[in-house]
Amino acid sequence: MKPENYKKLASKYEPKKPVLKNCIRAFWTGGLVCIIGQAVSYFFIFFFNFTEQTVGNPTVAFMIFLSMLLTGFGVYDRLGQFAGAGSAVPVTGFGNAVISAAIEHRSEGFVLGVGGNMFKLAGSVILFGVFSAFIVALIKSVF
């Protein structure tokens, strides 16, 4: 992913992409990622002591591991160009955002570069997730 400003500028000059085609692509690629996730979680249920209740954590961790490999080898970015939201919305997209930022800023050193920029893109997801969850849970627990 590139910085937002660039995207805005680029979209002005880029020819309009057909919405329907993008949606179909997002649908099947996103669905496919979920099928892989389902297979991974059945794997953990079968061979390890995880129940359907508890399998979410190892599944997510494993999917992010996969996205590290794909990001590292440069596959995920190309995948993203084709799949659009199909690769951004699954948790692998979150992983990709963190990992690609970490790799990209490595030349600035591990503390200021990697540490400081890791959540540059994914930070807003965490911020709004946590804050809205706080509000929702607060309302729920009071009433």
């Binding site: 892989i36 059945y42 061979f47």
Partner: peptide, 8 residues
């Protein structure tokens, strides 16, 4: 990746 589905 899909090939990694569990055999069981």
């Amino acid at each position: 990746l899909a090939g990694c589905a569990p055999e069981h």
